[in-house]
Design a protein around this nucleic acid. Structure first.
Length: 825
RNA sequence: GCAGGCGUGGCGGAACUGGUAUACGCGCUAGCCUUAGGAGCUAGUGGAAUAAUCUAUGAGAGUUCAAAUCUCUCCGCCUGCACCA
C-alpha cells in the first residue's frame, strides 16, 4: 500500500517551493502554448466535480506540453464580482469582499490539493482595483469610440435581484441567476454596441464569419449563430387608411416571405407599436385597444409564453392598411404574439402559410387565402382549396398561385422579382434582421466595477479621465438592494468634481455586468502586473491568442460571445492583430450524481472532491474523472468505479518490487514489452493531444497488465511507464521518480519519443472471411502479398470445410487486414 | 416547433479513413490465499446451445464482398433556442 496522503502532501509542498516548474517564461523563445480554464466564480461551496474534471484535463495537457518543450502559460484567477456574492453578503450581513476572499482561500487550497500546476505568479482577481481599473479602461475605450452609449428603452428587470439584466441573462423569461420571472421596465441604461460586430467590420471578422475559422464544437458555433439570429427578408410599407382617406403614414412590416404577400389578409402590430398612439383619434375603439395593450404590457415574458396556445388580440376599428401589391384594403390588429423588439414590431399575416397567423385567423374568423402550392416533388395533394387544420398550413417554399403575375414562379424566384418591383416602386426594401441586440451592461447593484462616468449639470455626461482610474468601489456602503444602485448613498463616492469644468458633479452609480470583467481577463494573464496598460503589446504578441480553452457549455452564448466581441473591438481599433480570442475550445460534460440525476444540494447527491481525495487520494480522483468517459460527454459518477483506478495506481506502485537491474550485456531484450511501450508512448501522446484521456489511461492499464505478466522489469521500462503516467498522476510519478534515485522533478524530463520502427508489427492476424463472416484467423507476416495470403487462406482446414461444394465468385484482399472469399449461396 | 447531438453487455465505455464488435475499468461467477476482508492472486464472463454453430450495436429498409460506422424512414433520450414573422 502506498501512502497517498503523505506522498501527495510532500509533492505539493515541493511544487510550491519549486514554482519555476510551472512558470510561464516571458523571456523564453520556445514555442508558446496558452492553455486556459474558465476562471471560476469563487462561491462558498468550493470546487465541484465539474471543476475537477476540466481543470484536470487542462493540467494534463499543460504538464504534457511542458515536457514536450513548450513554453506553457497555464494561469488561474477569480471571477469575483457578481450577484451571488452580493446576495450571499446580504444574507450573512458580511461584506462581499470578505466572503469572496475567504472563498478564494478555500478554492486555492483545493486546487493545491488536486495537484494543479498553475502559474500562481499570474493570479488575478476581477474585484481587485488593480484589475477593474482596466475593466473601466475598456469601458472608456468603447465609450470614446462610440461603442458604449446610454439609451432609454424597454429592459428586463429582475425583481428579486433588483436590477436590470442583459437579454442573454433573461432567457426563457426568467433571471439567469435566481430563476425568478423577469418583467419589463422602461429605463435609461448603458449599452455596448455589440451589433456593430455581427458582420465583418473593416478588417475585423464578424461574430458570424469569425466562427468559421475557430476550432470549436459545432453545437456551440450553431448556438451562437442561432442567438445572433440573422434572417434575410424585406420591409414592406402598407399605406394606412382611416375614414376612407389615405393617410401619409405607412405601416412597415418585416417578412422573410415576400413570396406570400398575396396571401396577406390582415396585419398585426405589437402592443407597444407607435401606430396605436399615433392613431389614437382615428381608432374608434381606442378604449378597448388601450385596455388590451395595458394588460399585455403588464404580463411578464413568462406569462406571455404560457399563453402561446391561445392567441389574443383586438381589431383596430377605424384604421385599415393597404397591401401595396394588390391595393387590397385589409384589417389591422394588435396582438401580443407579435414582438415589439423584433423586426418592425409589425407583421403581415398570411394565415394559409404561417402557423401563428393561422391560429389567430381561425380564432377571429379571418380570411385564409392559399397562395403557395407544395412543390410537385413532395407529392402532397395540391388542390385542397380550404385550409382547415394547422397541418394543412404549408409553411415551406413552393410554387406561387393566386398571386397575379407572379403565379407559377417558385418561392425563390418570386422573392427576387417581388423585391425588384418593391424597390423600383419604393414600396419596400430588402432588409437583414438580427435577433441579437446591443448588450445592456449597467446594473443597479453594488458588487461590480463602477462605470467611470460623471454627470455634470453644465457639461452633461463626462467620462472619467484615464489617469483617475480606477474609480474605486467604496467600502462604507449599505449594500442592501433598493432598486437603485447602493452607490447612490455613498457620499464619499458621489462627492466628485466635473473633470471638464470643475463644478460639483455626481458619479454614475450603476456598476458593470460581471460579464464585462470576464470579457478581457485572458489578456491580463499575459501581463498581470502591468500598471500602465491592460496588457503590453509585447506580451499580447508573446502569449495570445489562447490556444486551448476548456470550460462549461453554459457559457455558449454569454461569456463566449462577449469575449469575442471585446477581442474584435481591440482588433478593430488596431490594438491587436488577431480577431478571435480562443483558437480551440472544448466543453467538459456534466458529471451527474451516481443516481443519474444532476448533483444538487437539495437532492443530497453531491460528491465532494475533498471527501474523495481524503479517501482515495488526488491522483485517484484525477484519473477517475478522466477515465469514466470522453471529456465532453455527460457521465454519471460511480463510487465503485474509482476502486479500479485505486487498484491500478497500487499496481504501478508495487511494480517497484519487481525491478530487475542487470548489467547492460546481460539485459534480456524483451521485444514484446519494448514494442508495447513504444506503442503506448504513441497512443498516450496522441490521445492527450486529442483530449481523449479515457483511452490514454486504458492504454496505460494495458501496458501495466502486460508488464505484470513478465518475469523481468528492466528499470528503464519502468521509468518510461512512470513518465507516461506523470501528467495524469503527478504525485505518484514524482515519488517513484525520486525512488529511482533522481534528484530532479520528473517534470524536468522531456516527453519520450517513440521509435516508429519498433512499433511496426511484423506479424499480424490475418482474418479470413467467407461472404463477410469471420471463419478463420491466421498468424502471418504483416506485409504478406495478396497471392500468398490467398494461398494461405485456401490452405486452412476450416476454410476448406466451409468452402466444400461452393463456387468461389470473388476474393477480396485488404492489405494487413483480411481475405474475404465471396461464394455463391 | 427549430437547431445540435446521442442510442453498443448488468454498468461507465472501446472500435483509426466501412474490414476480428464489446478494448480498458466496474460488477458478477468459480478457485487459491487468509482468523477475517469492501484486501491480493488465477481463470471465466453479450445472448442461445452439450457442441458444431447460430445470433446480437434502438427498430426497419437500402448501398457494399463487408455496416456500430454511409443513406433513408421511424422510435426513444439529452442539450440549446423558442410566438424572431
Amino acid at each position: 500500500m502506498y501512502n497517498y496522503q503523505k506522498i501527495e502532501e510532500k509533492w505539493q509542498k515541493y511544487w510550491e517551493k519549486h514554482s519555476e516548474l510551472c512558470r510561464a517564461d516571458d523571456e523564453s523563445h520556445a514555442k508558446k502554448q496558452y492553455i486556459l480554464d474558465m476562471f471560476p466564480y469563487p462561491s462558498g461551496h468550493g470546487l465541484h466535480a465539474g471543476h475537477v474534471e476540466s481543470y484536470t484535463a487542462t493540467d494534463i495537457i499543460s504538464r504534457y506540453s511542458r515536457m514536450k518543450g513548450f513554453n506553457v502559460l497555464h494561469p488561474q484567477g477569480w471571477d469575483a464580482f457578481g450577484l451571488p456574492a452580493e446576495n450571499y453578503a446580504i444574507k450573512t450581513k458580511t461584506h462581499p469582499s470578505i466572503t469572496t476572499k475567504k472563498a478564494i482561500v478555500a478554492f486555492k487550497k483545493q486546487m493545491r490539493m488536486m495537484g494543479f500546476s498553475y502559474d500562481w505568479s499570474r493570479e488575478i482577481n476581477s474585484s481587485d482595483p488593480s484589475y477593474y481599473k482596466y475593466t473601466q479602461w475598456f469601458f472608456l475605450l468603447l465609450y470614446k469610440n462610440g461603442l458604449a452609449y446610454k439609451k432609454q428603452g424597454k429592459v428586463n428587470w429582475c425583481d428579486s435581484c433588483q436590477t436590470v439584466l442583459a437579454n442573454e441573462q433573461a432567457e426563457n423569461g426568467t433571471c439567469e441567476r435566481c430563476k425568478n420571472p423577469v418583467t419589463q421596465k422602461d429605463l435609461e441604461q448603458w449599452y455596448f454596441k455589440i451589433t456593430d460586430f455581427i458582420e465583418d467590420n473593416g478588417q475585423t471578422s464578424g461574430l458570424l464569419s469569425g466562427l468559421d475559422k475557430v476550432d470549436w464544437p459545432e453545437s456551440t458555433k450553431t448556438a451562437q449563430k442561432h442567438w445572433i439570429g440573422k434572417s434575410e427578408g424585406s420591409i414592406i410599407k402598407f399605406k394606412i387608411k382611416s375614414l376612407n382617406i389615405d393617410s401619409k403614414f405607412f405601416l412597415e412590416v418585416f417578412t422573410t416571405r415576400v413570396d406570400t404577400i398575396f396571401g396577406c389578409t390582415y396585419v398585426v402590430v405589437a402592443p407597444e407599436h407607435e401606430l396605436i398612439n399615433n392613431y389614437k383619434l382615428q381608432i374608434t375603439n381606442y378604449h378597448e385597444v388601450k385596455k388590451y395593450v395595458e394588460q399585455a404590457k403588464k404580463k411578464t415574458d413568462l406569462q406571455r409564453m404560457a399563453e402561446t396556445k391561445e392567441k389574443t388580440g383586438v381589431k383596430l376599428e377605424g384604421v385599415e392598411g393597404i397591401n401595396p401589391f394588390n391595393n387590397e384594403t385589409i384589417r389591422i390588429f394588435v396582438a401580443d404574439y407579435v414582438l415589439a423588439h423584433y423586426g418592425t414590431g409589425a407583421v403581415m399575416a398570411v394565415p394559409a402559410h404561417d402557423q401563428r397567423d393561422f391560429e389567430f385567423a381561425k380564432k377571429y374568423d379571418l380570411p385564409i387565402r392559399k397562395v403557395i402550392l407544395p412543390p410537385v416533388l413532395l407529392n402532397i395533394p395540391r388542390n385542397a382549396e380550404e385550409i382547415r387544420t394547422e397541418a394543412e398550413c404549408f409553411i415551406a417554399d413552393g410554387e406561387l398561385t393566386n398571386s397575379g403575375e407572379f403565379s407559377g414562379l417558385t418561392s425563390e424566384q418570386a422573392r427576387k422579382k417581388l423585391i425588384e418591383r418593391m424597390e423600383k416602386e419604393k414600396i419596400g426594401i430588402k432588409k437583414i434582421n438580427y435577433k441579437l441586440r446591443d448588450w445592456l451592461v449597467s446594473r443597479q447593484r453594488y458588487w461590480g466595477a463602477p462605470i467611470p462616468i460623471i454627470y455634470c449639470e453644465k457639461c452633461g455626461e463626462v467620462p472619467v479621465i484615464e489617469k483617475d482610474l480606477p474609480v474605486e468601489l467604496p467600502t462604507d456602503v449599505d449594500f442592501m438592494p433598493t432598486g437603485e444602485s447602493p452607490l447612490v448613498n455613498s457620499k464619499k463616492f458621489q462627492n466628485v468634481k466635473c473633470p471638464n469644468c470643475g463644478r460639483q458633479a455626481r458619479r454614475e452609480s450603476d456598476t458593470m455586468d460581471t460579464f464585462v470583467c470576464s470579457s478581457w481577463y485572458y489578456f491580463r494573464f499575459a501581463d498581470p502586473k502591468n500598471k500602465k496598460e491592460f496588457t503590453s503589446k509585447e506580451m499580447i504578441k508573446k502569449w495570445l491568442p489562447v490556444d486551448l480553452y476548456v470550460g462549461g457549455a453554459e457559457h455558449t452564448v454569454l461569456h463566449l460571445l462577449y469575449a469575442r466581441f471585446f477581442t474584435k473591438v481591440l482588433h478593430n481599433l488596431g490594438h491587436i492583430d488577431f480577431d478571435e480570442p480562443f483558437i480551440k475550445l472544448r466543453h467538459q460534460g456534466t458529471i451527474l450524481a451516481e443516481d443519474g440525476r444532476k448533483m444538487s444540494k437539495s437532492l443530497g447527491n453531491v460528491v465532494n472532491p475533498d471527501d474523495v481525495v481524503k479517501q482515495y487520494g488526488a491522483d485517484a480522483l484525477r484519473l477517475f474523472e478522466m477515465f469514466i468517459g470522453p471529456l465532453e460527454d455527460t457521465k454519471p459518477w460511480n463510487t465503485r468505479g474509482i476502486i479500479g483506478i485505486v487498484r491500478f495506481l497500487e499496481r504501478v506502485w508495487k511494480l517497484k518490487l519487481r525491478i530487475t537491474n542487470y548489467p547492460e550485456a546481460e539485459q534480456v531484450t524483451n521485444n514484446k514489452i519494448e514494442k508495447l511501450l513504444h506503442q503506448t508512448i504513441k497512443k498516450v501522446s496522441e490521445d492527450i493531444e486529442a483530449l481523449k484521456f479515457n483511452t490514454a489511461i486504458s492504454a496505460l492499464m494495458i501496458l501495466v497488465n502486460e508488464i505484470e505478466k513478465q518475469k523481468e522489469l528492466p528499470i528503464d521500462n519502468y521509468k518510461l511507464l512512470v513518465i507516461l503516467l506523470s501528467p495524469f498522476a503527478p504525485h505518484l510519478a514524482e515519488e517513484l521518480w525520486a525512488e529511482f534515485g533522481n534528484k530532479e522533478s520528473i517534470f524536468k524530463q522531456s516527453w519520450p519519443k517513440y521509435n516508429s520502427d519498433l512499433i511496426k508489427e511484423e506479424k499480424i492476424i490475418l482474418v479470413i472471411q467467407i461472404n463477410g463472416k469471420l471463419r478463420d484467423t491466421i498468424n502471418v507476416v504483416a506485409d504478406i502479398s495478396e497471392d500468398e495470403a490467398k494461398k494461405i487462406a485456401f490452405e486452412s482446414e476450416k476454410i476448406k470445410k466451409w468452402l466444400e461444394g461452393s463456387e468461389v465468385l470473388k476474393i477480396i484482399f485488404v492489405k494487413r487486414k483480411l481475405v474475404n472469399i465471396v461464394v455463391k449461396d
